[in-house]
Amino acid sequence: MSNPLYVINVEAAIYREDKYLIIKRSEKEEHALGVLSLVGGKVDGRTSENNVLENSVKREILEEVGVEVSNSLHYIESNSFISDKGYIVVNIGFLCKYESGEARCVSEDEVSEVHWMGYDEILSNPKAPSWLKSSLKKAESVRLIVENF
C-alpha cells in the first residue's frame, strides 16, 4: 500500500536526574522541521513482534541520539495529528529513564541539536512548541509518581 491509512509514531520523554533530553529536529525531516521535540519516530511495521511500541521507541532513541534507556518504560499519552505531508499520525508517548551513552546527533538527517534541559527551562522556552510543553507536563506528572512510588 503506497499511502497508509495512518502512521504510528512513538516518542520518548527521557529524563536523567532533573533534566529531559530535548532535540531540535533537522531541517531535512518530513514533519516539524527545525522545532524542539522529544526523541521519536515511526513504528516499523514490516515484521511481527511482541512489544512493538516499546522496542520501537528504544530503537529510535538509540538511532537518533545514541543513548540507552532502562527497560521500565511508562506510558504518558496518545494523541493524533496530521503530518505536514497529510498523513494521519497516531502518536504514543513514553517516559524513559536514561541508562547510558552520550547524547549526540547520531542521525543528522533527523536531529540537528541535542540538549539536556530542566523542566521549567523547557516550559519557559519560547522556541518550545505548545504540543511539546503539553507532553512534557504529562511526562513530569508520571515521573513524579514513578520516582516517589
Rank of each mutant, 00 (worst) to 15 (best):
I88R: 12
G40I: 03
S100K: 12
D44F: 07
S78C: 02
L123H: 06
K42W: 04
I8S: 05
G41P: 03
S2C: 00
G86Q: 05
I122Y: 02
E108Y: 09
T47A: 13
K28Y: 14
S134M: 02
R16P: 00
I23W: 07
V67I: 14
V146Y: 03
G45A: 12
V106P: 04
I14V: 15
L38G: 00
V106N: 06
W131I: 06
H31G: 00
V35S: 04
V90I: 14
I22Q: 01
S56N: 13
K24H: 00
P4S: 03
A128L: 07
V52C: 12
S112P: 03
P4N: 01
E110N: 13
L38M: 14
N79V: 00
V7I: 15
V57G: 10
S37R: 04
E147P: 08
P4E: 09
K85F: 10
A12L: 01
E54V: 09
C105V: 15
A32S: 00
L132S: 07
V39A: 07
V35M: 03
G41S: 07
A128K: 06
G45Y: 08
A103Y: 13
I122S: 05
L95F: 05
P126A: 06
K85P: 00
E121S: 14
S37T: 04
S141E: 15
Y87G: 04
S26Q: 08
A32L: 15
R25N: 08
S83W: 09
G40T: 08
I76W: 05
L144N: 13
I76R: 04
N148A: 12
D109F: 12
Y119C: 06
R46N: 14
S134G: 05
A32Q: 09
F81I: 01
A128S: 12
R143F: 06
L136C: 08
R104T: 15
V39D: 03
S134A: 13
L136D: 05
D44V: 13
G86V: 06
I22Y: 09
G93W: 08
E49V: 14
S2F: 13
R25A: 01
G86T: 08
K58L: 10
G40S: 07
A32W: 12
N55A: 10
Y15H: 07
L21T: 10
N91H: 12
A139E: 03
K58Y: 11
G40Q: 06
A128M: 10
H74A: 02
I22D: 09
I82S: 03
E29C: 14
V90P: 00
L53T: 04
L144R: 14
L53A: 03
K85L: 14
E147N: 13
P126R: 01
L21P: 08
K42P: 11
W131D: 03
D109Q: 13
S78Y: 00
K85W: 00
A103F: 07
I61F: 05
I92R: 02
E30R: 14
D44Y: 13
N3Q: 12
G86M: 04
V67E: 00
K133T: 02
K133I: 09
V39G: 01
L73Q: 00
L53P: 11
M1L: 09
D18E: 15
D18K: 13
K19L: 08
K137M: 12
R46M: 11
H74Y: 15
G34C: 02
S130H: 08
